[in-house]
Amino acid sequence: MQIAFSPCPNDTFIFHAWVHGLIEGAPKLDVMYADIDITNNLAANRQGPEVMKISYAALPWMLEDYALLPCGGALGRGCGPLVLTRNSRNHEPDSAQLSGRRVAVPSERSTAYLLFRLWAAKNVPGGVGEIVVLPFHEIMPAVRDGHVDAGLVIHEARFTYPSYGLSLQTDLGAWWESDTSLPIPLGAIIARRSLDVDQLAKWARASVEYAWAHPTQSQDYILQHAQEMVPSVVQQHIDLYVNSFSVNLGDDGYAAVRTLLDRAAAEGLVPQVDLDKWLK
């Protein structure tokens, strides 16, 4: 079975057991390690593998072909995207600084970018300027080196951005949680509707539970794909992004997804879809 997910520690931690044949009855996986912008576009163009990790923001374009699995993804609290700028003299965050500015983002269909657009519509006078799509690991160097004025970052950048001499302009996750009281829906696991989606969910859930029960077994595999992250940052990454929502979205998880996509559709940022029809 073909699957695509990122090389980030949360994904490799979650899928280690399945990838290595440790889940009874689960089919062998042919893994494609890909940046989220790649998987978002593959899914949207109906060219993707049978199972994929995508951004929740990309979900409306593919619900006719792919079903959302209730586990295996990234959703939580205190883990939202950050808007970063170069250090200024006063160190005061001011959203007006982004007016007409050049901003790097990890994907135009990422949840991070969708949250940024919802936030900027209310907080950046006149709107931002040019949007530049970069792989997420290239964004902080681009901000540091002055190629862009600000960067929208995800994943381990939450822990490492001070080492690049950058300042936190806005924590979009904190803004979202304050505004909605809901967790932040970041990455979704989807599977082609022609497959046995319920069975796939059981295997994905079993892989998460195996990872928690045997936390050291996946270390070599995770570090192999962790893009030179130090082990302490890798562990922070896993602890933050692999949580109870990774085994079951539950009522709060589904409410977060619905709220995000409903708000985005109301602003004309994503297609309007009948979520009651497609989501359990």
Rank of each mutant, 00 (worst) to 15 (best):
M52D: 01
M52E: 09
K53H: 12
K53D: 09
Y56F: 15
A57E: 03
A58S: 08
L59M: 08
L59I: 02
P60C: 05
P60H: 01
M62E: 00
M62T: 08
E64Y: 05
D65A: 04
Y66G: 03
A67H: 01
L68Q: 00
L68C: 06
C71F: 02
G73S: 09
G73Q: 09
L75E: 07
R77V: 11
R77E: 13
R77I: 09
R77Y: 11
G78P: 11
G78W: 05
G78H: 05
C79L: 14
G80L: 01
P81A: 11
P81V: 14
V83P: 11
V83T: 07
L84T: 10
L84C: 03
R86S: 08
S88G: 09
N90E: 15
H91E: 13
E92K: 12
D94V: 13
S95R: 03
A96H: 15
A96W: 15
A96N: 14
Q97A: 15
G100L: 08
V103I: 15
V103N: 01
V103S: 06
V103K: 08
A104L: 10
V105R: 03
P106K: 01
P106D: 02
P106L: 05
P106T: 13
P106G: 06
S107E: 10
E108C: 02
R109N: 06
S110C: 11
T111Q: 08
Y113Q: 07
L114K: 01
L114D: 04
L115I: 12
F116R: 01
F116H: 09
F116A: 14
R117Q: 15
R117V: 10
W119K: 00
A120P: 14
A120W: 10
A121Y: 11
A121L: 09
K122A: 11
V124K: 04
V124Y: 02
V124D: 07
P125D: 06
P125W: 14
G126R: 05
G126S: 07
G127A: 02
V128A: 15
V128M: 07
V128Y: 13
G129K: 03
V132I: 12
V133P: 05
V133H: 06
L134Q: 04
P135W: 05
P135M: 03
E138G: 01
E138A: 11
P141I: 12
A142N: 07
V143T: 09
R144A: 13
G146D: 06
H147L: 15
H147W: 14
V148C: 01
D149Q: 00
V153F: 08
I154F: 03
H155P: 00
H155N: 14
E156G: 09
E156F: 13
A157G: 12
A157P: 04
A157C: 11
A157I: 04
R158V: 08
R158Q: 10
F159N: 01
T160Q: 10
T160Y: 00
Y161H: 08
S163D: 07
Y164H: 07
G165Q: 00
L166R: 00
L166S: 01
S167Q: 14
L168R: 13
Q169I: 04
Q169E: 14
L172N: 10
L172I: 12
L172E: 12
G173P: 13
G173F: 07
E177N: 04
E177W: 14
D179Q: 15
D179L: 14
